[in-house]
């Protein structure tokens, strides 16, 4: 396959998945404002609902900051490696993010996300408040205010998945869907 063929194949694949934006590689705080503004601009062209633009942006910020803080996949500069996509989902949009996590951490994360996924709007609101007030002990089931925020801004329950990569690591992916309300 030629260089252009190979590249076009990747691009086509993203288009087939309705991806509007994709980033894969090291993530740090300096990346965030530029990338966030760019995605905001792109989504604003696609929808005239400002709340939707804001929710896509917010979820992107929480996803990237999670990778920066927790990804167990650091290069020599200790940068978290992540893959982020933003795309079309019918009338709305999706934001997915994936990164490598250490297996023990994956198990804790799975439990936490399962409990957040099972909560209704009122329970998520109560959990958000409890965490902000510091009433939820660190490491307890629902803790992780970023994930609760993502769940609250999503129009449907968050999707998440883990697959084993090797004896030490799992690959973790999270998807949020945002529709105009």
């Amino acid at each position: 396959m030629s260089l252009a063929q190979e590249h076009y194949r990747i691009r086509k694949l993203l288009e087939e998945e309705n991806v509007l934006f994709c980033y894969s590689g090291p993530m740090n705080e300096a990346l965030l404002p530029g990338l966030g503004q760019l995605v905001k601009q792109k989504i604003a062209v696609e929808t005239d609902h400002p709340g939707t633009v804001q929710n896509v942006f917010s979820i992107l910020v929480e996803q990237i900051q999670n990778v920066i803080r927790y990804a167990e996949d650091r290069d020599t500069q200790a940068l978290g490696q992540g893959t982020l996509t933003v795309g079309r989902d019918g009338e709305g949009f999706f934001v997915t993010c994936g990164n490598r996590v250490e297996i023990g951490q994956a198990n804790r994360l799975r439990e936490k996300l399962a409990s957040i996924r099972a909560m209704d709007r009122e329970e998520l609101k109560a959990m958000y408040r409890q965490i902000l007030k510091g009433e939820v002990p660190e490491g307890s089931k629902g803790a992780g205010v970023g994930f609760v925020d993502i769940a609250r801004r999503s129009s449907q329950p968050i999707e998440f998945d883990f697959i084993p990569i090797d004896s030490n690591y799992s690959y973790f992916a999270l998807k949020a869907v945002i529709r105009p309300n």
Binding site: E62, L132, K133
Partner: peptide
Amino acid sequence: IYFNSTSAKVVMKLFD
């Protein structure tokens, strides 16, 4: 206009 979840903890602190 916007604050992330970590900043929300600060907003809560201010309200308290």
